[in-house]
Design a protein around this nucleic acid. Sequence first.
DNA 1: TTGTCAGATGTCATTAGATGACATTATGTG
DNA 2: CACATAATGTCATCTAATGACATCTGACAA
Lengths: 229, 229
Amino acid sequence: MGEITPQAAAALPGGEPAVALADPGPGRRQRKKQLTRDALIEAAMELFAAKGYDRTAVHEITDAVDVSERTFFRYFASKEDLVLSFVRDGATAFAEALAARPPQEEPLTAARQAFQASLRRLPGDTGDVASYLSVMELIDSTPALLAAYLRYIHDHDHEIIRVLAEREGVDPATDRRPRVLAAMIGALVFLANRDWRAGGDPSAEAMSAAFDAYAGEVTSALSGHWPAR
Amino acid sequence: MGEITPQAAAALPGGEPAVALADPGPGRRQRKKQLTRDALIEAAMELFAAKGYDRTAVHEITDAVDVSERTFFRYFASKEDLVLSFVRDGATAFAEALAARPPQEEPLTAARQAFQASLRRLPGDTGDVASYLSVMELIDSTPALLAAYLRYIHDHDHEIIRVLAEREGVDPATDRRPRVLAAMIGALVFLANRDWRAGGDPSAEAMSAAFDAYAGEVTSALSGHWPAR
DNA sequence: TTGTCAGATGTCATTAGATGACATTATGTG
DNA sequence: CACATAATGTCATCTAATGACATCTGACAA
């Protein structure tokens, strides 16, 4: 558990920090910032994995990277925000992937395909599903993070809604269908995700299977008077 | 904005506090505790309404009731927890109402009826919908509360799932349908709630209409290739 | 190269939420 | 009344977060 100087820290979830960091100071300066950011994320995730999110203080993270505590909060709006940086990247990738699906595809199929596609372009092009799963695991097992995660999803629903409305050529302001569908997709991805993780098989096929298992039950679930299993 | 002594404070959302408060010291002691709890809730909600949740410090609440700050945290696990006490009561009432619906009823209809029924038995038998709406308004407009709310719903999904599974006579551990349905109901109630509030009509009919407007679109939304409006 | 400006970081102070430890007061009971 | 215990107060401490201001460092032009 050595120090993680900004010089270390490989390619980590990029994306803009939640706290706007002014405009791109050209060249080296910008690179240093990225290194610091990456180092903070790496150190934090290591500590979270080792001792848990709640039992890791911000100063422990900044000590490991050798920056001041204040600097941490210049990169991340909060401790939660650091973890959410992964979620932001994932949500963005998902929204883009969904927008790229052919409109004639059934909505839930499109969602599943989009989710798979988004997994492949997560960290550094490597389909590093393992790290995604571990982050989700961390979130799911940490009340504070779960709350922040759910709120993030809630707050950014509108992006998915917009994409869905566009796919179908309706107005999201007046048509309730994209809202309903977005909520359903969110729930299904969430449920499938958990089963997927619990299954222990990180393959894309396992993810598909988990998603389809839920998607296939939706209509039946809604109708009631369920046929026995 | 005067003091709210424990002697004031009418019947407020009861239920057990999140922090277990040992067993029922009989008689007066218990009554005093309830009064203090009610006074804290009343003072807090008044301050939240006046200055907003974030800008209200715990010591302001305890000052108004004239107890120590430490005492607050003996009654409520956190500042959020106080607001969630309303949500807890509501969720419990909803779960009970849902369990009471006839099993042959369509699930979404049962959910709507249960929600209406739960509204009627909220504060002190008076169908005081206005206070429910204002609490939801507060939650919805306060990021920290919204996150806590969403997590609460998430954490207590299993109660609804259990009721649904029982209604239909299936095993919630192996059957995905109650899980899917619970998620859908949660989403629909949430969406309908917002439209209902936005509509400005606090009547039960308006609530029903908002719910049905969403429920009626679910099947269509899922199928895709939406017919134009 | 050097001087200047701006962006990035460090330092310090402060607020607020939350929790543990322990003393004090109040209440129920024999 | 006296005792046991529950409820509360007091005090100390931790952590997250934020504002203010000083300092350092990379960017860039003369």
